[in-house]
Design a protein around this nucleic acid. Structure first.
Length: 746
DNA sequence: GTTGCGCAGATTTTT
DNA sequence: TCTGCGCAAC
């Protein structure tokens, strides 16, 4: 195989096929090219069967891209080559081996919003008010355990070290797992942990897969969580042929469980591994690379890579100071117009922001001057209510035990079976130790036996028609009717379509259109797949919900969050909202240095997407949460050395002023750390209280006798009246009067 | 069982 | 400012 198109480090990364390898690949260092070559090299030069290679990435997008690129250049039959995501890989494996875990292979997969519903119903059952324990903090806790690789009955010592089984939340975790199991369902997290469970407790299964996968590749290694790490460790135990590729400077998902230890511990698990650094950047100008390197150099938690490039020096980074957020949006629109006039391709222009909410003003501005744009990843198609409803109907056809799907659909459209009734039937089902579905059947067949439930005849007939339509569809499915046809039948006979049509509103019509789209999606799936099945379709859409929002390459400017930009590149990048509390976000400012470092990596990711020119914009005043706030420019702008940027003020109407090659002195912004409220036309400044001396000033780490360790978010009042707001480990915040509260400094 | 008001809360979101 | 959710009244 010809490796001439690769530099020497890349070549090493391709040809070092045996034994453990860690590749630290900087932004724009030709990582994908290298990985694709490595796979080809294995198949061509080492005659490794594609069946023996497993390549896992995080996103379907990345998996698809890699697969296509391998396919484009290879003559080998790729049917067996697994380039997939962690989750799809595990789902597939679990369907095959489900019986070991007491699951059946038609299990449902619950997404985040569905696990939240389960969490809520558990809290409801315990009568816990959401003020006492917020469902999302419990959900976060449960997710956290799974990210660490814990499953019920797990006895792995290292995992047990990480978790606290005496935690008061643990009983909810157990409850949650039971609930899932009863529904023959798994959530995203347990897709991974269930496979761990399988491997750790059924060695014959593990050995089978160890023999099968002789070469393992892990992309985006910096984003793996503990569970995934253990999975890789187990799978590769035999051959030790594991190659991980990552960039610690681009780790931006720690809040999803990404664990830096996976990089640090690699050596102890895989001693004598080869470390290869890809440090040459082929993407961006020198100015951009050097500036970005300076910024990221402020992070302490790094393995240390020095990026460099042979590319030209390029143009200076442009920092744009705007009076407010509207002008910022206007500037972006104005500048893009100039670029396009100058012959630039709109497809090569992107606008990045920290939060989705920021897109609105920019969209308004672009629309106003008629610039075509597309927003990448906004509201997801499959998260729409009507789509969810129908998917739940379909799920019941496959998995009757799916209680969540049943409770969601039983009364949509209205069949006179409300929450109370469902509750009653659920309780009865628990009493009789049976499923909700079976309970419905019993009531339907022997109504008189359940007189004590006091179910009205309306309820009875509601249940009857619900069961009737679903059973008919099930029969149709087993008779070999295509999923798409069953879907149409369901849509018509469940009364769902009728319900929307009779509403007649504009919104209802849009929903009908969405349901047509779902129909198309099923048909598309049937065409693409050799053996289409409803289970297969449902799995595909829960694990690969990426919707093609507008065709790229249609002369549109791209807009997205920085998280969404990872892995992409554009000639021109506009980073907006580079202000303290926006970027870095106010949450990270509260959470301390590690959180700031993650924000800095995010900033680094944003910068390194740009090939030719980078614009960094900020607004002096921004409408936030109902009032205009003056936050001052982001600290990350301060971290760019002056040699690399030019600073301008945008005054509106295309006028720039105050052009400098240096930054304004930082004291210029001291006045901005205030808050103003607009009441009608009058401007009232809210001057912060004169600094009092607090017993527990902001940022102090404290411990509360009852709630455990936490951090002071804010303090007010003086002396005996001092009150503090404490944020605890689980994310809850509480306010205390210092003289009474049992808190102490840590 | 459905509709409407009031209040809290407000990042990022590969799967 | 805007939204989403819980609870209270129909």
């Amino acid at each position: 195989m010809n490796l001439e198109h690769l530099n020497s480090e890349q070549q090493r990364a391709v040809t070092q096929t045996e034994g453990p390898v860690m590749i630290l690949a900087g932004a724009g260092s030709g990582k994908t090219r290298t990985l694709v070559s490595r796979i080809q090299y294995l198949m061509d030069d080492h005659k490794v069967s594609p069946y023996r290679i497993l390549a896992v990435t995080f996103s379907n997008k990345a998996a698809r891209e890699m697969r296509e690129r391998v396919a484009a250049q290879s003559k080998v039959d790729l049917g067996a080559l697994q380039v997939t995501t962690f989750h799809s890989f595990c789902a597939r494996l679990l369907r095959i081996e489900a019986q070991y875990l007491g699951l059946s292979r038609n299990f449902s997969i619950y997404d985040a919003s569905e696990s939240k519903s389960i969490v809520k119903s558990i809290l409801g059952k315990y009568g816990i008010n959401q003020k006492e324990l917020h469902p999302s903090s419990l959900q976060y806790y449960i997710e956290g355990l799974k990210n660490l690789g814990y499953y019920m009955g797990c006895s792995d010592e290292e995992t047990l070290e990480d978790i606290d089984l005496d935690d008061e939340y643990f009983k909810f975790f157990r409850e949650y797992e039971t609930e899932l199991h009863k529904s023959n369902a798994v959530d995203f997290g347990s897709l991974i942990t269930a496979v761990l469970n399988l491997f750790e407790n059924f060695s014959e299964v593990l050995e089978r897969y160890q023999r099968k996968y002789q070469y393992i590749l892990v992309d985006e290694y910096q984003d793996t969580n503990r569970a995934q790490f253990r999975l890789i460790k187990l799978l590769s135990q035999g051959t030790k042929n594991v190659c991980v590729v990552g960039d610690e400077d681009q780790s931006i998902y720690s809040w999803r469980g990404a664990d830096i230890r996976n990089i640090l511990d690699f050596e102890s698990v895989f001693p004598k591994y080869d470390l290869i650094k890809l440090e040459q950047n082929y993407r961006s100008s020198k100015n951009i690379i050097e500036a970005a390197s300076h910024v990221i150099g402020n992070n302490v938690n790094r393995k240390g890579k020095e990026m460099w490039t042979d590319n030209e020096q390029g143009e200076s980074i442009r920092v744009l100071e705007c009076r407010d957020d509207k002008l910022e949006a206007q500037f972006v629109g104005h500048e893009i117009t100039q670029l396009i006039k100058g012959g630039s391709d709109p497809n090569e222009i992107a606008i990045f922001y920290r939060t989705n909410a920021q897109s609105r003003l920019i969209e308004d501005a672009l629309r106003k001057i008629k610039l075509p744009y597309r927003v990448v990843a906004g509201i997801k198609f499959y998260e729409r209510k009507e789509i969810k409803d129908l998917l739940c109907y379909l799920r019941i056809l496959v998995n009757e035990k799916d209680a969540l799907a049943i409770t969601r659909t039983i009364n949509t459209p209205v069949r006179g079976i409300g929450a109370r009734t469902i509750r009653k039937i659920e309780d009865e089902a628990i009493k009789l130790n049976t499923s909700l579905w079976d309970m419905f059947h019993r009531i339907n067949d022997h109504y008189d036996d359940y007189k004590h439930l006091r179910l009205s005849t309306k309820v009875k007939s509601g249940i009857r028609s619900f069961l009737h339509i679903l059973t008919e569809c099930q029969v149709a499915l087993t008779d070999g009717t295509l999923p798409s046809q069953v879907y149409e039948k369901l849509l018509a006979e469940s009364g769902y379509l009728e319900m929307l049509n009779s509403e007649g509103t504009h919104e209802a019509m849009a929903r009908v259109e969405n349901l047509d789209e779902l129909s198309n999606a099923i048909k598309q799936y049937e065409e693409d797949e050799e053996e289409p099945s409803l289970v297969g379709f449902l799995e595909t859409i829960t694990l690969d919900s990426e919707t093609e929002t507008g065709e790229p390459g249609q002369g549109q400017i791209s807009m997205m969050t920085i998280h969404g930009s990872k892995g992409l590149e554009y000639e021109y990048v506009f980073l907006v909202g580079a202000e303290e509390t926006v970027f870095p976000s106010y949450r990270s400012l509260e959470d301390g240095e590690d959180a700031i470092e993650e924000e800095r990596r995010l900033f680094y990711v944003a910068m390194t997407r740009a090939m030719r020119k980078l614009y960094i914009c900020f607004a002096q005043g921004r409408m936030l949460w109902g009032s205009v706030r003056f936050n001052g420019p982001s600290r990350f702008i301060d971290e760019i050395p002056e040699d690399y940027f030019e600073w301008d003020k945008y005054e509106g109407a295309g006028v720039l002023s105050g052009h400098k090659k240096t930054r304004p002195s930082s004291s210029d912004y001291d006045d901005f750390s205030q808050e103003t409220h607009f009441a009608s036309d009058e401007v009232t400044y809210v001057i912060p209280e004169t600094k009092a001396t607090y017993k527990f000033p902001e940022g102090t780490n404290v411990a509360h006798q009852l709630y455990g360790p936490g951090k002071i978010l804010s303090a007010e009042g003086s002396g005996g009246d001092e009150k503090v707001v404490v944020k605890f480990k689980d994310g809850t915040k509480k306010k205390f009067l210092v003289k009474f509260a049992p808190i102490e400094r840590l």
